[in-house]
Design a protein around this nucleic acid. Structure first.
Lengths: 234, 234
DNA sequence: AAATGCAAGATGTCAGACATCTTACAGTTC
DNA sequence: GAACTGTAAGATGTCTGACATCTTGCATTT
């Protein structure tokens, strides 16, 4: 599996070395000349790789002095932090923390959406639940997942908060694979259908607190499902 | 106010043109040669500027075809989205949405922290409240803000969720300026001290629900303060 | 009409050069 | 001896020009 570009390759390797502890936060990374020699690429390629990491606030480049590693809490890339947090031992712990994060955003968005969602969108929401039910009956996992995603996406947009969607997007991408796994279990599907029904009804009532709790219960179920899945496979 | 580097200048100008609607999502931006001619810089400088925007998922570069603008909901940079959302009319609306987002993360983190914070950290928390009180009495705004930030930062870390801190960091940076403004108002300081006291007590009781509500009340106050401030100045 | 080949234009990468900034150190001055 | 200064080394910033490779459209061939 060769990577797409030399720049991406160099950036990935450098990030790996940082995560591996070779260059701890605050330390100086090798100069552009040295890196270009080590990776056998031109200095321009190294510079572009650095720019990539700098844009994610993983590195700080200071003219005349050198390039430094930022502390992890300044990193702006959820994926990079995930790679760092999953390093070695605690991948399960990282997954749980991601679900916790998702829970905050989804329950918050759901609470906001209760006061802002249109009647039409509530109807669409119930439509998605029906689609999930239908997919469950014919055992169509792909269709089930699709309706599930659309359901949550609609609520996110109904919250009318652009920034929530922005922060949620990388999270969504990271969690996507695991969601497909859990959604394949029929019992989990049944749980999910019930929770989605509750959420849709809560939003229909326009009760913010009730909507939040309905989504929170769903997230709790997701967390439990993940824990069981992780405990089984490990 | 000249910007630091040519690369940053070109990246900013290009982002401005994108936000301004000159290059809508999905459209093709001018080629590297054309941009280097327009901005009177070398092609290398343009490439590095593009790389920074690509790293933030604002642009997608496809070899042989060109460079395309991504839809706004894929942008990974909160600051860039903020610039887009504040374009022209609705800066106040954007500020409110940012507070809403902060509310989700802080209340969520506080709820988690209730079950994980150490006795020692609870003590430190009360120490920060005392510091805020002292700063309030001698009218030291800087010290007040510092204790306020430390208070929230400690709770964030006590949640023991790395990803929350990562998502919160850019939000923190964006909101920092405005917080200094509101914190200068003595009446708002008094409100804040009371709320922080309640939060610290709730965390001390280790009651997750109560902790969440205490932080939620504080966020509601912050939102109200902001609305009043915005309404006054505009 | 379908398949092929080629040229144009885009990004990817390279090489070497010079500019500018930061820092340390040696030398100068008082 | 302390403070100032100039210089050299090493780092990043930028430029120029070249060649490689990929995509696409179009003309050519079959």
């Amino acid at each position: 599996m060769a990577r797409k570009s030399l720049v991406g390759e160099v950036a990935d390797e450098l990030l790996d070395r940082i995560i591996g502890g070779e260059f701890p936060p605050g330390s100086l990374v090798p100069g552009e000349h040295e890196l270009s020699a080590r990776h056998e690429v031109s200095r321009m390629t190294v510079r572009e790789a650095m720019k990539t990491l700098e844009a994610q606030h993983i590195l700080s480049v200071e003219r005349g002095r050198g390039t430094f590693v930022n502390p992890l809490n300044r990193w702006a890339s959820l994926e990079a932090v995930l790679r760092a947090a999953s390093e070695g031992k605690n991948e399960a712990e990282a997954s749980i923390q991601l679900i916790e994060l998702r829970r905050m955003l989804e329950t918050g968005a759901c609470e906001l959406a209760a006061g802002r969602i249109s009647d039409a969108d509530v109807g669409v929401l119930f439509g998605y639940v029906a689609a999930m039910r239908a997919a469950h009956e014919v055992n169509d996992v792909a269709a089930f997942v699709e309706a599930d995603l659309a359901f949550h996406d609609l609520i996110l947009h109904a919250s009318e908060n652009v920034f929530v969607a922005v922060l949620f997007e990388p999270l969504h991408r990271v969690l996507e694979k695991r969601r497909t796994e859990t959604s394949a279990v029929r019992q989990i599907q049944e749980h999910a259908i019930g929770h989605h029904q509750n959420i849709a009804e809560a939003l229909e009532s326009r009760d913010a607190g009730r909507s939040r709790e309905a989504m929170d219960a769903h997230m709790q179920q997701t967390l439990d499902d993940l824990k069981n899945l992780v405990l089984e496979s490990k």
